Amino acid sequence: MKLISLLSSGAVQLPWPAMVDGIAVSGSKLDESSICRRKCGEDRRCMGDVVPGEHTCEHGLTYFVCSLDDERITVYGVRGPHNKTKFNQYLNHGLKGRAVTQTALDFWLNSLGRLRAQIEEDFLQRQAEMLDPLHDPIRLVKQIGTIAERLVRKQSNAVGGLDKQIEQVSPELKSLVKSSDLLTDSFDLLSIYFNPEAATYGQRHPVSVHGLLKKLVSIFRIDNGDGSVSLKIYLEGECYRNAFVYDSFKLVPFALLSNAVKYSMRGSVDVSILDHGYGVEVSFCTVGPLIEPSEIDGIFKKRVRGRWAKELRDGRGVGLFLAEIIATAHGFRIKVSSKATGEKKGRIPLATNKFSFVLPYQNLN
């Protein structure tokens, strides 16, 4: 749990004015010093100082820079034991009742750390309890996939890996294999929904980005049973480099392709992969409901969907939210563009929607 969320909730009252990673937290027991307000306003030296320990600002006040795990906490506008400033009447009035000792600060930090650790432990326990009923369905889905693959190997005469063998079997068996893969990835997304930290579980390992996209395109390209497909998905471009990523990475293109398929209004999706040298760009483009400019940032928030997307289809608004969590864990952002085509389906304006990301060079081989 982020400290800024815990402290801003008001559930814990701060003994002194404080900032978390440069962001002021309101609601401290001791009001902010009038000297801070008058002399510094919003532009404060203590806000950007990352050097741990006790410091004295140019106006004669003390601020402490400390940390809890990976978050920086700055207690400011107080009087510390090492403050050698000569106090005049103005400073004495501004610092009255603001003495802070290192012992008191350490005690508060340790208490805050224990509280957060307990909250996170309880939260993880509740998450485990919520996921527990899914253990059997997840196991059954994997078992179905294993049995389907065995049937593929029995029916196919193709030489090579499973992907080649799947192309030789009946449309019904092919759909069964693909459906089990879709369900498995959907359960993986659900696990990250309940526990975002799962996005970085395990060790990074090499994955062929191009091979991953080919597999996903094959999974989503469901046969109708007569040799035709209900949705055309085109994959363009090449990349011969591997990406060193967590297991969760595959869920980013999975979620973006799933989103494109769901909202496609022209019966096709264009998937492209381009190696730029500085990174590999992957994009998903389709014609669907317009995403208003004011909605682009919001659609990555939990349970938030665009106005026209809600009118077109039912949905939960979690796919893009989870994709953004996983992308952040890998050091990249998902970009969105939506250009109106000038056409409408009913009252829904259409647009060419493109979701893309660039996997940074440092993640590649």
Score class of each variant (00 low, 15 high):
residue 2 K to S: 13
residue 4 I to W: 03
residue 7 L to G: 01
residue 8 S to R: 12
residue 11 A to G: 12
residue 12 V to A: 05
residue 12 V to R: 02
residue 13 Q to C: 01
residue 17 P to S: 01
residue 22 G to I: 00
residue 30 L to V: 07
residue 31 D to F: 08
residue 32 E to C: 11
residue 34 S to K: 07
residue 37 R to C: 09
residue 40 C to N: 06
residue 43 D to L: 13
residue 48 G to Y: 12
residue 55 H to G: 06
residue 57 C to G: 11
residue 57 C to D: 12
residue 61 L to E: 15
residue 61 L to Q: 12
residue 62 T to V: 00
residue 64 F to R: 08
residue 69 D to C: 02
residue 71 E to P: 12
residue 73 I to S: 02
residue 77 G to C: 14
residue 84 K to H: 05
residue 86 K to P: 02
residue 90 Y to H: 08
residue 91 L to F: 03
residue 98 R to T: 00
residue 107 F to G: 10
residue 111 S to H: 01
residue 114 R to H: 12
residue 115 L to V: 07
residue 119 I to S: 06
residue 120 E to F: 01
residue 129 E to H: 07
residue 130 M to E: 13
residue 135 H to V: 15
residue 137 P to S: 04
residue 139 R to Q: 10
residue 141 V to G: 09
residue 144 I to T: 03
residue 151 L to E: 10
residue 160 G to K: 05
residue 165 Q to N: 11
residue 173 L to Y: 03
residue 174 K to D: 14
residue 174 K to F: 08
residue 178 K to N: 14
residue 181 D to I: 07
residue 181 D to R: 08
residue 184 T to V: 15
residue 187 F to T: 10
residue 188 D to Y: 09
residue 188 D to N: 07
residue 194 F to Y: 15
residue 197 E to F: 13
residue 199 A to Q: 09
residue 202 G to E: 04
residue 203 Q to D: 09
residue 205 H to D: 06
residue 206 P to I: 10
residue 207 V to D: 02
residue 209 V to T: 07
residue 210 H to W: 02
residue 211 G to M: 06
residue 214 K to A: 11
residue 219 I to Y: 03
residue 219 I to H: 06
residue 222 I to Q: 09
residue 223 D to W: 00
residue 224 N to A: 14
residue 225 G to E: 03
residue 226 D to A: 10
residue 230 S to V: 02
residue 233 I to A: 10
residue 235 L to V: 03
residue 236 E to D: 12
residue 244 F to I: 04
residue 249 F to S: 11
residue 250 K to H: 05
residue 267 G to Y: 02
residue 268 S to F: 10
residue 270 D to P: 03
residue 273 I to W: 00
residue 276 H to E: 12
residue 277 G to V: 07
residue 277 G to K: 04
residue 278 Y to C: 08
residue 286 T to P: 00
residue 289 P to I: 08
residue 289 P to A: 11
residue 291 I to D: 06
residue 294 S to W: 14
residue 296 I to W: 04
residue 300 F to Y: 13
residue 304 V to A: 14
residue 304 V to G: 11
residue 307 R to E: 15
residue 307 R to Q: 15
residue 310 K to R: 12
residue 310 K to H: 05
residue 315 G to Y: 00
residue 316 R to T: 15
residue 327 A to M: 00
residue 331 G to N: 01
residue 337 S to K: 11
residue 338 S to Y: 09
residue 342 G to N: 02
residue 342 G to E: 05
residue 344 K to R: 11
residue 349 P to E: 05
residue 349 P to C: 08
residue 350 L to Y: 09
residue 361 Y to V: 07
residue 362 Q to E: 11
residue 365 N to Y: 03
